[in-house]
Simulated assay, not measured.
Amino acid sequence: MEGITTFKSDYRPYEIVQQPRHVPEEYKPKQGEIDLGTTYKRDFNSYKVQPVAIVRPLERQRVKQGKVDTVPTYKDDYRAWDVQKIDLYKPEQTYHPPAVKFGNSTTFQDDFVPQEIKPRQSFKPSPVVKRSIVPFNGDTSHRLDYVPYQLEFKFARPKEVYKPTNQPFEDLTTHRYDFQGLVGETAKICRPPYTRVTQNAHFEGSTEFRESFQPWEIPAPEAKKPQEYVPPAGTMQLNSTSHLDYVPHQTTRVSPIRPVSQRRNYNFPFQGKSTTKEDFPAWECCRQGLIKQQQQIPNPSGKFDGWSTSRSHYVPHELIPTESCKPAHALLTSSAPFDDTTVYSLDYTPKKQGTCPASYPSPPGYIFETTNSRGHQFFRKVTPAVEAF
């Protein structure tokens, strides 16, 4: 196999003409100096500037003439009124709690007369059973109206005895009868034969890109060098306008002028009693004890007898069993034979069981016709001829 592709066979090389490259003109600096003058520099007129004097009002120094000892107008004009204390018109409390213990009896205690408790008479009827003298009549409507009948004798059907057949069992089936055991042909494989394609030619790994590519030299990019820092010559002037124009002054600290305190000192003690404390004194009180009534009904002193009312009044009686009204369980047999005739046995018509014609080697009443490819035999039924009149 040739290593030429369709692209290689159809490709036509053309001469590549190199395009002309634009060559920039060489830079030539202009001769002379650059005029850096601006309109502001040209029209600006410089004047001599003097420092501006600070327009500041003069400080008024307050002269201390002496100690201030004056009385305000409110204290001078205020006159205290002589107001007397008003006494309360409250009646004196003459009640005093008694010191003796309360022991007076109540109206209920005076009028109540204890009475003796008497047991009441019981109105409950006596539980004594009253026996009847009349004998018990056990006759019921069922016993009076029941008429016993004699049952007929049930006919017992004899059990049939199984009798096996004398003919041997024929186990010939349709498959066994029709199967001939013919040998068939083996199925053929429809898969095409596998033919491996081999190449002895050497694979050429050259491509169009490898053949047409021409390496070009690429120059390295130039790195721009930063300018070196050159510090300015001379010293820096650190004087500001405030340092140059400020004039220091010698001043004294102003002392505070505070008036003399008019506080008066009183030597008499403070009266801490109020009207509420004087009118509402604390009273001594004690908690009232519980009033417990004495028990009037005495508790029983004797020992409790465990005998109840039911036990004391109960009279045992002898139980009489009740007679059963159920009829006696007795079978009534009959001597008459049992009639086992049914509708099915009367209407049933026995039919003759025929033999399947497929079980015969050559079925009677049929004529052999053909055998198909699978080995099945086909028969045709013989129709009897009908004579014409």
Rank of each mutant, 00 (worst) to 15 (best):
R176Y: 02
Y177M: 13
Y177P: 00
D178L: 15
D178K: 06
F179A: 06
F179H: 14
Q180H: 08
G181H: 10
L182E: 13
L182T: 10
E185L: 04
I189G: 02
I189N: 13
R191Q: 14
R191K: 14
P193E: 15
Y194L: 07
Y194W: 08
Y194M: 00
T195K: 13
R196D: 08
T198D: 11
Q199P: 00
Q199A: 09
N200A: 07
N200C: 04
A201R: 10
A201L: 11
H202V: 14
T207M: 01
T207Y: 02
F209R: 11
F209A: 14
R210N: 11
R210S: 14
S212A: 04
P215M: 03
W216T: 08
E217V: 01
P219N: 07
P219Y: 01
P219A: 08
P219C: 01
P219L: 04
P219M: 04
A220V: 11
A220M: 05
E222Y: 03
A223Y: 06
K224Q: 08
K224R: 08
K224C: 02
K224N: 06
K225P: 02
K225G: 00
P226W: 03
Q227N: 09
E228L: 03
P231N: 01
P232V: 01
G234H: 02
M236T: 08
Q237I: 06
L238A: 03
N239K: 14
N239D: 09
N239Q: 11
S240C: 10
T241L: 12
T241A: 13
S242E: 14
L244I: 15
L244N: 07
L244S: 04
